[in-house]
Design a protein around this nucleic acid. Structure first.
Length: 151
DNA sequence: GCCAACGTTGGC
DNA sequence: GCCAACGTTGGC
């Protein structure tokens, strides 16, 4: 899951109660559908910093709730306000994300050097989706990179 | 700031 | 339903 650190960084998330944040602001149907339909409580998440000096994976997290309506869609003063959404007919759903580990940044440039990750959706040419699936093999490979870095 | 790539909008 | 125009994302 991508987050712009100016909006919500791994450090900011760790300051929240229970290290948990509602993943507000997604306004793309594919990304919404992943949260609404595919992600289950307890699923692992790679917390990715995007649109910043050094993009990359900054932490490990997990899905900490089932899907529920993004409250910001109903808030007229929010930049995420959606006039077509109503509490009776919400358009945008989200999940809570609980960060359980900050890691030494695994930079995007490094991810791109790994043959094991060439098929990773995040790394595909032209990918702009802020939420993309990670295969079990990709997950394991990335976790092994984290360990290597820490030693 | 540039720009490739993709998503959304809206006229027809 | 098509598709041109426009807006957004996000690495560089």
């Amino acid at each position: 899951m991508k987050s712009e650190p100016d909006e919500m960084s791994i450090d900011a998330a760790l300051l929240e109660p229970d290290h948990t944040i509602p993943w507000v602001g997604v306004r793309n149907y594919q990304a919404r559908n992943f949260m609404r339909d595919a992600m289950k409580q307890g699923d692992g998440i790679l917390f990715y910093h995007s649109s910043c000096a050094e993009p990359g994976i900054a932490g490990l997290a997990e899905v900490a709730s089932g899907p529920y309506p993004d409250p910001t869609q109903f808030e007229p003063d929010s930049k995420y306000f959606d006039p077509k959404a109503t509490p009776e007919n919400p358009r945008w759903m989200l999940v809570d994300v609980r960060v359980f580990k900050k890691i030494e940044l695994v930079p995007l440039a490094q991810l791109r050097t790994h043959q094991e990750l060439v098929a990773m959706r995040l790394l595909q040419r032209g990918n702009r989706l802020s939420i993309t699936p990670v295969s079990v093999d990709e997950w394991r490979h990335i976790l092994s990179l984290v360990k290597t870095q820490k030693s």
